[in-house]
Design a binder for these strands. Sequence first.
RNA 1: GGCCUCAUGGUCAAGCGGUUAAGACGUUGCCCUCUCACGGCAAAAUCAGCGGUUCGAUUCCGCUUGGGGCUACCA
Length: 479
Amino acid sequence: MAKVRTRFAPSPTGFMHLGGLRTALYAYLYAKHNGGDFILRIEDTDQQRFVEGAVDLIYSSLRESGLIYDEGPDIGGDYGPYVQSERKEIYKKYAEKLIELGGAYYCFCSKERLESLTDENGNRKYDKHCLHLSKEEVERRLAAGEPYVIRQNIPTEGVSSYEDMIYGTINVDYSELEDNILIKSDGMPTYNFANVIDDHLMGITHVIRGTEYLSSTPKYNLMYDAFGWERPKYIHLPTIMKDATRKLSKRYGDANFDDFVKKGYLKEAIINYVALLGWAPKNNIEKMTLSEMVDLFSLDGISRSPSIFDEVKLRWLNGEYIRELSDEEFYEVARPYLEQSKVNGLYDLKKIAKLLHGRTEVLGEIPEKIDWLASMEKYDLSLFDNKKNKTNAAVAKELLPRIRKYAEEVPSFDNDSLYEYISGKCAEEGIKAGAIFWVMRIAITGQGVTPGGATEMASLLGREETLKRIDFSLSLLEE
RNA sequence: GGCCUCAUGGUCAAGCGGUUAAGACGUUGCCCUCUCACGGCAAAAUCAGCGGUUCGAUUCCGCUUGGGGCUACCA
């Protein structure tokens, strides 16, 4: 069997969309699982939608997520060029050939005439008007420099049939199809034409793309057949949805790979999560590395129904990846976020990172978790209420001087020393340690929830600041 | 509207004629615990509806309903 070749063929219209990323991922996985090649091709035939810089974004997103392509515009290959706008002449040549074969024809119809074809329901279907032009007339008008397009000549009757590797047999009546434009008046091909020519010329064996092409694939098969080319195998993928009725799309602004990276999701987690949308490995594992996915990937694990993107689950998975990091690695990835928080320069960021490590699911939430540490504000005294430890503001007022004394006396201000010293004292003096720790934590932070216990927070603050805060709380309790 | 297509808990999903209908996220309890988080345990589904086929349907077929896609000189 021939070597498997798959391709990812995005249009450079903006950021790398997660739906596109998944398509790329599956194309990559299928190729690699079968020992084949994965190719990148840029489909930039629509100059209106072209966005400056988008091509570089495609390169970097693919590279960052580990989807290394074997051939592509920036790395070359034997089937280039890999950018469609650079293949204009190739399309022209094949379009002319298709015309000779009877599979296409020149069309000179004006926009106005096309619009006049619209029926009362707002539907429009080209009437093959120019198909009936004589050869001489076509020659004449071409020579006169009249603007033209090239349309595909689709049979008016009959049924087209093909096998999709996910959806099975797909039958479509030719009468449902229209004589689409293959070559636009600017000389550029449309997707409808370019994808066929390129996939064939580049030796693509398996075409992997979204279901939006499921029902238009018969048109492409018609061309493969006309040229006498072997049709590729088709693998159409279900859509990723934002919710039950809306497709995940750029319009909502939160569906880009870059957005998630910026929010503080790890690239591995994003890829891993996206892989799970529409595919499940046989062994029921959810957390996988890219290379594990390559091993496990199989078409019969792909579902046919659209799946909804669930950021909550992505969060969980991201948390799993974060917890797996060493403290040192976590510090490195968390650093930009730590540095943009208000505590930057005030406390030891490494120490904070260590406390945050097991409590962080998304890196971007780090600042809000620690910003309050920068200054001690007046807080609600009901925070001292705790029924398990039987504490409240009155109890706190009583306990705090004692806590202050411990903080002064403890020989070393690291967490272990603090914990041992204070719990030792509590045992000695017959006081409930839980109550002391609760009061102490509230008194030095003024927060109900903190990224560490009383002694951890104290050791982070240092003796001086801890005492200062205790005094502040004492004064609050006096009022 | 026409055509293509999909349908198991809130979400992702196992299942491929006979099961107590996996698992994960989330949710809710409980346990652990110097708060939170982590971790542990537990709970929650008559498989969209209706008809068939079959000794027997979540699994096969049809219809209905609902969702998605296509119907561009966009891909």
